[in-house]
Design a protein around this nucleic acid. Structure first.
Lengths: 237, 237, 237, 237
DNA sequence: TATGAATGAGCTTTCATTCAT
DNA sequence: CATGAATGAAAGCTCATTCAT
């Protein structure tokens, strides 16, 4: 039973504001009593804390302190710890979609285009480590929260469509082989990059290597592109 | 902070019992058996609970209940919750090593051998979902616990060595290209399989597919082999 | 601790408006009406919520929601939760006084008159269950709030006076015996009815009867009259 | 979700120990680690606190402090605040049953017997003010908790049976009139006493009298007996 | 070896209330 | 007259862990 019923912000209808998380330009020089700003501060703090500590180990107080707001505000805006977590989870997905939406491969040749996308994924994982952390976490929970999201429809990755078109072009040009499912390929591309980041700590300990050094990362990018292109072009002369 | 007088089991020197978790054949009377059996029951329960709930959400009581032992016994045998977690983490690594040790590719031709290893990884993730869960978890913690393990040395995967030899054979036979690092290749192979399992819940929700159906799994195995072989044989005529 | 500048409504001198809670006919413009209406809506909501949930379990928000006003309005009009509760408590007492004032037994013979009053009490409890609830509640608090009421003087029940006069008439006519204290008799009459209502839930559970069925209620009325009249006429031939 | 599952005391099967709340004779001179004693101390404290403050205003800490036990113990033995309240509610009912069971009217003549029972009720309310408080409270909650009690069957008042037999005897002797329902009579007797106690605070404030003075109480006892006997003997010559 | 009793710290959440507009 | 934003205090409950037998 949430405490701020009726008109509490966390109960309000989500207005579409586009996928961007950037706070809208401040019209006035308001410091306090700026609902949007407060909400954004909390969300940003939650992203950092949840990614660093995980859902159960993150204390509401940690988030409040980091956001420099009163604990109560978290409940005011997000209803509960789970509500906050869900909002954060949605945020990282929106970031993903935003990143994937920004790529434009229409002018590239197919091989270049695929390479660009393989790179993009790695860049995304590198730029948004919290995405990796959140996915890890959420999978530990069997995607329990994601499933409940009302914004699920917005999380359809645009890249599969793009991949589909590039594949077609490559096939028409006789560069890529046929019979490749875009979603499968998308997963393969992600896999090669994601696991490298998500398991970097255990792999690092086991192999005694620093997987995150610039050289290692460049190497990995190159390898991933190599792997995927090898796969797509196999037997095409 | 010593929790038990004299030498509590969790303080005793770990005797090497080989990687097997199966309890050794009863040598003495029934009394002695009970201790080992209790420890094993607790560990098995811990593996299940930690994999299902994660470290913080698993309550000592959950484990005790599942193992049908008194809470206190967990402290007797494992010292603390973290001690129990570490033991469980070590157990899944030992299972990994055991599985990887059982493969014998010396009689296969290089391509066959690589394919067998790609399959093996998938089989492992499928047979031991708790391995995937534990790795996910442990990476969320930055491998904090793994790093502390005194058995770290036992966790060196035997597959990298095997891969190294097969690569060499393949290169000598002019089938595989040169300049491929066994550890890098190992990571690539793992990645293609691991992420498919570790992210199965979120991927399932996002794409609305059941990634775990027998057909999907077969397809994935085939694809992974295809990808890796394409990569290794690229440009080799 | 003044909560509102100037003269907030809840600080204004209570103007006598008679015991009626009905809002007086609109004399001026619409604006003024709104204030009274808002206040009345809040009070009515408070009566319902407090009676249903009790003082501590009623949240200011419950009242605000039910009254469809902003939380802040409650503070504006009643100063605090306790202030609101006190106003509600006073309201049920005013209702009691109003009900008791409406009876006219001067034309009845003494027995008839007493019977009418016994009936009246039952009717009151039945019509205003919130009176029963509030009295129960207030007694749990040792009448702490009632004691503080500035309108205490208005709550002197008119029925004791009436009873006194009827008793006298009955005694003069040789129907009723002497030496009966009107207040004592009033309490006896109330008791027979009040406890039946106030304890209806526990009695219902314990005896497995529905005490509120029309038949049960009729029966109880009859019994109460019978009991009181028996008492008053005992030994009068 | 209670924390001490499986074998936590508050989950154990209630063993019938007779209605007495007196702690069993201490076999050894145990001070600490005496489960029964701890449980009893908590219960006694709960009876006092709940009766004095009401359910919502009683803080778990109040009870723990009064019982001089750790807060945690309350959850250990009673599972939750509601569990504790229910236990306390059951306790006052068991006290009621015990009190009512101790009366022996078989040797008295009917009038004497009824008088003794009327007195007994008053004595009960006077000796156990917490009974009055708990009934008041529980009726505010619509008997919600009582209804859930698994010991409900034990709360059938023995007095109704006794009343039934006395009524019969009186009727056979031509002293009491016929057609009187024992349960109805029981309620009437209770009502005359109960409301006097339960509403003593508001009545005291309204009438400016101390209803609890020894004289007032004697007077009330006498009146109640008088009223009930008048009722039963009305018209019997 | 095994177990019931006991503990202290800490976490999420709720609520009445006030600030600022 | 009305409202959204903000706050501090506290309450119930849970958990890992230890004591004592």
């Amino acid at each position: 039973m949430p405490s701020d019923r009726k008109t509490a912000p966390h109960r309000m209808r989500l207005q579409r504001r586009g996928p961007s998380l950037r706070k809208p330009p401040a019209r006035r020089a308001v410091r306090k009593r700026d609902a949007d700003a407060t909400r954004a501060k909390i969300l940003e703090a939650a992203l950092a804390e949840f990614a660093a500590q995980g859902l159960p180990d993150t204390r509401i107080e940690d988030v409040a302190d980091r956001a420099r707001v009163n604990r109560r505000m978290i409940y005011y805006y997000f209803g509960s710890k789970e509500g906050l977590y869900l909002a954060a989870l949605e945020a990282v997905y929106l970031e993903l979609i935003e990143v994937e939406s920004e790529i434009d491969v229409e002018q590239m040749d197919p091989v270049e285009a695929i390479a660009a996308m393989v790179d993009l994924k790695i860049d995304h994982y590198q730029t948004y480590p919290r995405f990796v952390a959140f996915l890890n976490m959420e999978n530990l929970y069997g995607a329990r929260h994601l499933r409940k999201s009302k914004r699920l429809a917005e999380f359809k990755t645009p890249l599969t469509q793009i991949i589909g078109r590039v594949l077609e072009r490559g096939q028409r040009q006789g560069i890529f082989r046929k019979g490749i499912d875009p979603v499968d390929l998308y997963i393969s591309i992600c896999a090669l990059g994601f696991m490298y980041f998500s398991n970097r700590h255990t792999l690092g300990v086991i192999f005694g290597r620093d997987l995150m050094s610039p050289e290692a990362l460049d190497q990995r990018k190159e390898t991933n592109v190599d792997i995927i292109i090898s796969y797509l072009t196999r037997g095409m002369g």
